[in-house]
């Protein structure tokens, strides 16, 4: 555990809490892509199956349970409790364009051809692109509420901080995982455009509105 890794994890938890609180307080999930949230739930489900097979630390197990429970809660709030506020029409990204390539890639490029390892690899690949339906929704409506922007910024920062963690671990512990690094780089690149808008607009108190 190093400072980048811890900061990354905290940013990740923070992002999820922001989102849950926003939905709960406003009693609405307007502007949030349910498809991205379902994909994230799938990411955690396929990655944290090892909760039952391998014990790393109390910290790891607790965080895994937090991610599983909070993503489950988010999906429940969006598709059951506050279903009426879910903006179907703007959430039109075709998820099969993400799921099919991730399944194929995880079958082809993995560390070991076992069920657990392929599922882990699938979750890593899927996580890197799971935000696309949300970014697509923002680009379609041309704007995002500031709370949604804070959520996206925290969620994007998490993987960027993990990149620093991997650089640190490579030099200090000689530990590296090419699949995670490759997917992490892709994931962070997808947020770059958003980071730019967030820093130039949202932090200056303006709404995040895309140029027409």
């Amino acid at each position: 555990m190093n400072v980048f890794r811890l900061a990354g994890d905290l940013a990740h938890v923070f992002a999820i809490i922001i989102l849950l609180l926003k939905i709960w307080k406003t009693r609405s999930c307007a502007g949030i892509s349910g498809k991205s949230q379902v994909l994230f739930a799938l990411v955690y489900l396929t990655r944290y199956l090892d909760l039952f097979t391998t014990y790393v630390s109390l910290y790891n197990s607790v965080m895994k349970v937090i991610f599983l429970a909070s993503s489950g809660a988010t999906v429940y709030l969006m598709y059951v409790k506050f279903k009426a506020t879910y903006d179907h029409n703007h959430d039109s990204f075709r998820v099969e364009f993400l799921l099919v390539p991730c399944v194929l890639l995880s079958l082809l490029i993995n560390h070991d051809f076992t069920v657990m390892e392929v599922l882990w690899t699938f979750s890593i690949y899927l996580e890197s692109v799971a935000i696309l339906p949300q970014l697509f929704m923002v680009s379609k409506t041309g704007e995002a509420e500031s709370i949604t922007s804070h959520y996206l910024f925290a969620l994007g920062s998490y993987r960027a901080l993990y990149l620093l963690n991997w650089i640190y671990r490579y030099f200090v512990e000689s530990h590296y995982d090419l699949i995670a690094i490759f997917a992490g780089v892709v994931q962070t690149i997808l947020y770059c455009d958003f980071f730019y808008l967030y820093i130039t607009k949202v932090l200056k108190g303006k709404r995040l509105q895309l140029p027409a």
């Binding site: 890794r5 994890d9 990740h12 090892d50 391998t54 790393v56 630390s57 790891n60 965080m63 895994k64 991610f67 560390h111 070991d112 390892e117 882990w120 993990y162 963690n165 530990h175 995982d177 995670a180």
Partner: peptide
């Protein structure tokens, strides 16, 4: 012999 792939991250 191949070492098992370590997954200590989230």
């Amino acid at each position: 012999c191949k070492e098992p792939h370590i997954k200590d991250e989230l």
